[in-house]
Structures are given as C-alpha cells and as structure tokens.
Design a protein around this nucleic acid. Structure first.
Length: 825
DNA sequence: GCAAGGTC
C-alpha cells in the first residue's frame, strides 16, 4: 500500500510531511522536484508540493490571430488547458504509478479544490482511490483529524473555480481584443480589459473626475487664542461657518472682550489600544506610506519569506493563533537589531496581543520568524523587515495612555471648544514610530474661572477636493469592494501601470485610461462595475451548492458577453476614434521646431521609445526619450525652438527642461563635474537598465565614468577631491545635502571605511540608541514648536492680518517666561 | 499580444 499526497506548495508539503511522519520524513528529489517521503504502518507515503495552478486556460492557437478571428466566435470558443509546470507534472506522474491512494491536501478553498483536481486529472487514476483532506491550519490536530477523516473531492467546488477561469478568460480576451483593435492598438501597445482591472481603473478615473469637476466652496472658521499660564487655542463651536454673514456676526460679538469664562472642563485618561496584526492589505498600505509601490513591497515580502525572515505574506488573517508562541518569537528577536525592544516586551507578565476584525485559520498574520541584522538585510529589505518587526512589537505591547482634556470657553455668548492631548505612556507607540502623534496643550482649568483672550480671528478657507487613491488606499478599497484577492491586488495595480492606464503613486489616470473607462462605462457598463465580481461570486456559490451548473453559468455569461459585444460593435467607430484621440494626446510632446508638425513619443517594434515628428518621413526630427521618466508637454518653447517639457522621475524633484539634450540650457543644467581625464563636461547618463552613472560627454573618445547613488538630487561642483583629484559631487535628499568624492576607490574613503570597521563595536551601540532617538523625535519637534508659538505669537498675528479679519487685543504675555521654563531640555 | 488566480 502506498499513498501520494498532493499539496498546494512545497512549503505546505514539508509541513504536512513533518506532522504526519512525526518528524521522520525525508526530503528526496523526483525529476528535480522536492518530494517528502516516510514509512508508516500502511506503507510508503510521498508528499509533493505543487506550485499553485499547474495548468492554465487559454484558447487554441487557431484563435490567436486577432484580426482574423471573429469576436462573436471567440465568445463561444472552448479553451484548452496548458500545463504550466512541466517538471512538477512529470514528478507527479512518476509518483502516481505506484500509488494506491491519492490524497488532495491543497488549501481548503475554491481555488485549492481546483488546483488539486487539475493535478489528479492529469494522472491515470484507474483503480486508485482519490481522496481529499480538508484542514484550514497547519497544526497537528487539524492535519491528523483531516487525514483520519478523508472525504471525496468536491467536484462542484472545483467547478465553481473553473467557471471563474472560463468567464474571466472569455470576457478578458473578447473585450481586450475589441478595445485594442477598434483603436488600432496592436502588438505590445494593446489595451486590456478585465473583470478586476477595469472596475479598479474605473475607481481611479471616477476619483480623477471628482477632482477635476470639484468646485471649491468657501467656509469660515473662527479661532481664538486664550491664555491661562500657557497659551492655547479655541475653535468656535459652530465651525465651519458656511455663511460669511453669520461668521462675521459671531466675530463681532467677540469684539473688544478681554476675558472669557470657562463653561466646561474635563480631563480623562484614555487607553489607546495597539494596532492589529498585519494582513497583506495592511502591510502593503503601511509599506506604501514608506514609499514602496505595492508590487515592490510584495516582491520584497516574498523574498523575506523564502529566506525565512517573515511568515507567509499572503494572508487575510488579523488574529494570532494561540499556537504561535509570542514569547518564543520575542526570544528569537533578541538576536536581532531589536534586542532592547524584545527584552523590554518579554518583561511583561502577560502578553495580550491585539487582534483585528478578520480571523481566518489558513495562515497567521504576518510576523517576523527570524532575527535579522541590518548587515544581513540591506536597503529596502531591511526597511520592510523593520516595519514588520515593529508592527509585531506593537501588537504585543501594552496600550498607550493619553491624557485627554476638553474645555468650553465662552466669550460673552459665543462658545469655543479647546482640546488637550498629551501622551503620558508611550506603550506600543514606542515600538511603532511610523505614526505621528501631535500633542496639544491645554492647561488645567477651573469651571467659572476667567481666561485671557489674546485674539479672535476669522479665517476664510476653501473646501478641498477628495484625495487621489494611493496604491495603499486603492488596495484597501479593492478589498472593500471584493475586487481581486490578497494575492492579486498588487498585480492588478501593476498591470494598470504597465498598460499606461495610470501613473504616479497617487494614481492619476492617463488619457487612454480615461478613454477606455469612458467607452466601457458608456457602452458596456457592467464591465467597469464591481458588481460583476459580486454576481460571479454568487454564481460560484450556487455551483458549489449544486443549484447551478458550470456549463449553465458559462452559457449565461456567454449570452451577457454577446449582448455587451453587440452594443460595443454598434459603436465601434466612435469608441475607436475617442481612444485614438486620447492616445494622441498622451503621446504629444510639443511642436516640432523644424516643420511645426507634432512631436510625439514613438515606440519601436523592439519596445524602445523615442520622440519623433508626425511629418515623418518628410521630417526626420527626433529626440531621445528621457530614460526612466515620465514626460509631459508644457506647450512652451525653449529659446532653441524645441519644446520644453516636464520631466518626472521617481525619487527626484520634477524638472522642467528642453526636450533637446544637446540644448545649451540642458548642457549647463546637466553639468555635474569636470572630467579629470580630458577636462570635458561629465553628466548623468542612464544605462539601459535605468541605472544612472556619471559619464564623460566626449565619449567614446573618453570613457571616464563614475558610479552614482540611484536616489536623491545631484548637483555639480567644480571642486576636486583633495585626496585623489576626482570630482566632488553635491547630493541633496530629504532636506539634507552633503558633498562626496565620486571615486569609489578613493584612498581617503577607504581609510575612513577602515576606521569605522575597527570601531565596529562602537557602531553597534550607536544603532541601538538610534531607535530611542527616533521615538523621541516627535517630542523634540513639539518643544521647538512651543517656543515658536510663545515667542512669536504676536508677530504671527500681525503678519496674518492681511489675509484675515482680526480682532486683536493687547496680548497679555505675562506667563510666556514661565512656559519657557517648563520646556524639557 | 488577451484575464485572474494560485505560487516563486
């Protein structure tokens, strides 16, 4: 008797093997695929891990020609199944020959059921028993129970997933081809449409329109400044005023009154509970705030996971399972850069982790599984690891405590509210410095007491348009609407960038993104509606429960698609023209200085882009495309005649420059250093991979180059390194600037590195201290702020009076010295 | 050259 167990991924196979064999399993290799094996009472068991779906749906080759295949035929075409993981399938086939029983042990969900069935269906299973183990956590109890209680595979559940595959492919392929062909976008410029990507793009476009159409409305706030020992602010209870007249009335009522009265005062201590553990969405959101695009953060998280530093990064769960062993993890983290934090947290008598709203049992929330140092993990990897580790700390740390006070102060009949907020115990906030807390001072007040009124001001403001989606907030919104899954949302967003539908971290739709959404909204509204996904979910449930069939739902969907296509075909010309127009606008750079034609970005068949003239071949004017940058037309002409454009590069400030790199204005601007070899200018050059380096302008005669840091703004100097004669470069980033020698081999630099290495011990303690510096940074800023307010209070008021109508009274600054003494040093 | 979903 021999058994073959199929799991969803290699990791899961390893865990199942350990649990079922009680640690006796061995890793072997079949056809270069890792397989786990052990002997039991009933014979040999093999466990193999798949790689998610091992087959992919696609149309047969005969349907590959976009211009020849009728879309109305494509709707009803039967897709074929292609094996996408041959090595695994070969190993599976080998192992199944001698197996009497095959057990599917993939994830216990719709896709898992299908993934298992895909594997089994590739095998010759005659005379073999096919079973299913259902468990939703990799614990001994769950897995033992599942294997003692094997069931039959759930074909209906697998069918429901296959239904999704078929519908997604049909709608995706038919509509992608329609939109691309009608607008003449073939090859790598095709325009895609899909059940998840199109509603997501529609969200971005809708927000963009809201912003564009936003009409700012004026409103008025009345703010007072009071003093009782220290100065504090009050806001009129009726803020914001929507009427100028009402606001003026309220302001006038305060005119000339020097004393207010405390009508209410309350002070409470408030516990602030820690943030919940990380699931994928929250991790991506927080990483996005640190500047990581979602797909980049996910890639790094996967790397950290495979290297063993963090737990599985694809999870919806926000509740740590009992079995996790929080103390054990903290013990482990004592070996990391966060020794002090881990030790501190271990001192707690009882660890009560925070929890979120969603609890699943398949994977735990994301937490660090191994200690790491800054040396082991560099750059972005470290930044993300630190985020995950600090989040973990925060979730097992005690609540923070704040003193929250509020007061109502009357100036005659006008009432003002004042709020005080002071953190008195940092708690979890100490470990999670990514959140900024702002403290507000409010002195202890006595009800009925008189308070000095320093000033009452009327401030006119305008309402602001809604914010654009960031990648983080978009992922959150997708989750809310049920669009995509924890594993695919970042990919979907990446796809929108790849298709040039949107740009920027705060997502701005491009002209073509807007045009595609508009065409779909107008003629096939269901395609941009998240409801399509909701409907599909319902249908899938019905298939799983047996009230509908796979074929039935697919036929229903074909009918809908056919109707949608009919409407689209009727408007084909209009849709094509509109999208074409949008694309032209998107590619427009400016007027050609040679023939007054239109300069536009052109993509060659090899995927390279350059700027060329619309009158080609009559006009041969071309310019290189600024690499790794987004170029937007300004409709301005440089003194040389070529158009000036906006160049947007990640990590660098937006620059406005002439499109001609040889233009004198650019030569001056691009000058970074004098070449020590030939005396010519050196400037920043971008490699094909998008990396920048310093190169000599007399290349190929002079091949002098220097490597450059990839982030930050670089400015030229005429200076040379005193030690090696190489150019000195000025670097500006995050408000700081410093000079460095461009030569990596500079003896002075090497000497410095040596010195810092020999004092490595010192630098360790330095890093330890760093965290505490960081956490107190907020408090420091506050102190300086305080000084500013008390010192320049009166100045501020006068300088603002130009813009505001102010009723200022003689400032009573009697206690300003006292408040200075109160400041911590 | 089409989608979305698993996983790497």
């Amino acid at each position: 008797m021999s058994r073959l167990i199929i799991s969803e991924k290699s990791d899961a196979a390893a865990r199942i093997a350990v649990i079922l064999s009680q640690g006796t399993s061995k890793r072997t290799s079949v056809n270069k695929v890792s397989v786990f094996q052990f002997e039991g009472e009933s014979g040999t068991t093999f466990i193999i891990g798949l790689r998610g779906h091992i087959i992919e749906l696609d149309y047969p080759e005969s349907l590959n020609n976009w211009s020849e295949v009728e879309l109305s035929d494509l709707i009803y075409a039967e897709p074929i199944k292609n094996v996408s993981a041959h090595s695994i399938v070969n190993a599976l086939k080998d192992l199944s020959i001698d197996a009497d029983e095959i057990v599917i042990a993939t994830d216990y969900d719709r896709e898992g059921e299908l993934i298992g069935m895909e594997a089994v269906r590739l095998l010759d299973t005659e005379g073999k028993e096919i079973k299913r183990a259902r468990f939703s956590a990799f614990t001994k109890l769950e897995i033992d129970t599942a294997f003692n209680d094997l069931t039959d595979p759930d074909i209906k559940l697998a069918d429901s997933a296959e239904c999704r595959q078929k519908i997604d492919l049909a709608w995706g392929a038919v509509l992608t081809r329609f939109i691309s062909m009608s607008s003449g976008q073939g090859g790598s410029n095709f325009l895609s449409v899909g059940r998840v990507q199109s509603p997501t793009l529609a969200l971005i476009v809708a927000r963009h329109k809201e912003i564009e159409e936003f009409v700012p409305q004026p409103y008025w706030n009345i703010n007072a400044r009071f003093e009782d020992g220290i100065e504090f602010k009050g806001e009129h209870v009726n803020n914001p005023f929507h009427s100028d007249v009402d606001a003026q009335k309220a302001l006038d009522a305060c005119q000339g009154i020097e004393l207010g009265k405390v009508l209410k005062y309350e002070k409470n201590e408030k516990d602030e509970y820690p943030l919940p553990p990380f699931n994928t969405t929250m991790m991506l959101m927080e990483a996005n705030k640190l500047g990581f695009p979602a797909s980049r953060a996910m890639k790094i998280a996967e790397d950290l996971y495979t290297a063993g530093y963090i737990s599985y990064p694809r999870t919806d769960n926000t509740v740590y399972p009992q079995s996790l062993g929080l103390r054990r993890i903290l013990e482990k983290l004592k070996e990391s850069e966060f020794k002090a934090e881990a030790e501190e947290l271990l001192k707690q008598e009882k660890i009560r982790p925070s929890k979120g709203k969603v609890q699943t049992t398949d994977h735990p929330p994301i937490y660090p599984t191994e200690a790491a140092t800054k040396k082991q993990l560099k750059g972005d990897k470290w930044t993300l690891y630190e985020l995950i580790t600090r989040r973990f700390f925060a979730t097992v740390a005690p609540p923070a405590k704040a003193e929250v006070s509020s007061a109502v102060i009357g100036i005659k009949n006008e009432k003002f509210t004042s709020k005080g907020y002071k953190l008195i115990f940092q708690g979890w906030k100490k470990y999670y410095p990514y959140l900024k807390t702002t403290e507000y001072d409010l002195p202890e007040l006595m009800i009925g007491a008189d308070i000095d009124v320093l000033s009452v001001e009327l401030e006119k403001k305008m309402t602001q348009p809604p914010r654009r989606y960031s990648q983080g907030s978009l992922i959150q919104e997708m989750e809310r609407l049920g669009l995509g899954t924890k594993s695919t949302r970042h990919d979907i967003i990446q796809k929108l960038y790849d298709r040039k539908y949107a740009e920027g971290n705060d997502l701005i739709p491009t002209a073509s993104g807007i045009a595609v959404v508009e065409a779909l909204n107008k003629h096939a509204h269901i395609v941009t509606d998240p409801k399509m996904t909701a409907k599909l979910e319902e249908d899938m449930d019905e298939i799983a429960h047996g009230s509908k069939t796979l074929d039935g739902v697919v036929e229903e969907s074909q009918e809908m698609l056919s109707n949608a296509l009919e409407t689209l075909e009727r408007n084909r010309d209009q849709i094509g023209t509109e999208i074409r127009k949008a694309l032209e606008a998107q590619h427009y750079i400016g007027k050609c200085p040679s023939c007054n034609g239109d300069l536009k970005t052109i993509r060659t068949k090899l995927g390279k882009t350059f700027i060329g003239c619309s009158n080609y071949p009559d006009c041969n004017q071309t310019y290189p495309m600024p690499p790794n940058a987004l170029v937007q037309p300004l409709n301005e002409e440089c003194e040389c005649g070529a158009p000036r454009v906006k160049v947007i590069r990640r990590g660098q400030p937006v620059s406005i420059s002439c499109i001609d790199p040889e233009c004198a204005t650019n030569r001056a601007k691009n000058f970074i250093a004098r070449c020590p070899n030939c005396g010519n200018d050196m400037r920043i050059i971008y490699s094909r991979a998008g990396k920048r380096f310093l190169g000599c302008t007399s290349y190929p005669d002079c091949t002098q180059t220097y490597p450059l840091p990839q982030m930050g703004q670089l400015l030229g100097t005429e200076e040379q390194c005193e030690s090696c004669g190489s150019p000195m470069i000025l670097m500006k980033t995050g408000g700081r600037s410093w000079k460095f020698c461009a030569n990596m081999e500079c003896p002075e630099k090497k000497e410095k590195a040596k010195r810092s290495k020999s004092s490595a011990k010192k630098s360790v303690t330095k890093t330890d201290k760093k965290t505490s510096v960081k956490t107190t940074a907020a408090a420091k800023t506050k102190t300086t702020k305080k000084t500013v307010t008390s010192k320049t209070a009166s100045k501020k008021t006068t300088s603002k009076t130009a813009a505001k109508k102010t009723t200022t009274k003689k400032p009573a600054v009697k206690a300003s010295t006292k408040s200075k003494e109160d400041q911590p040093k």
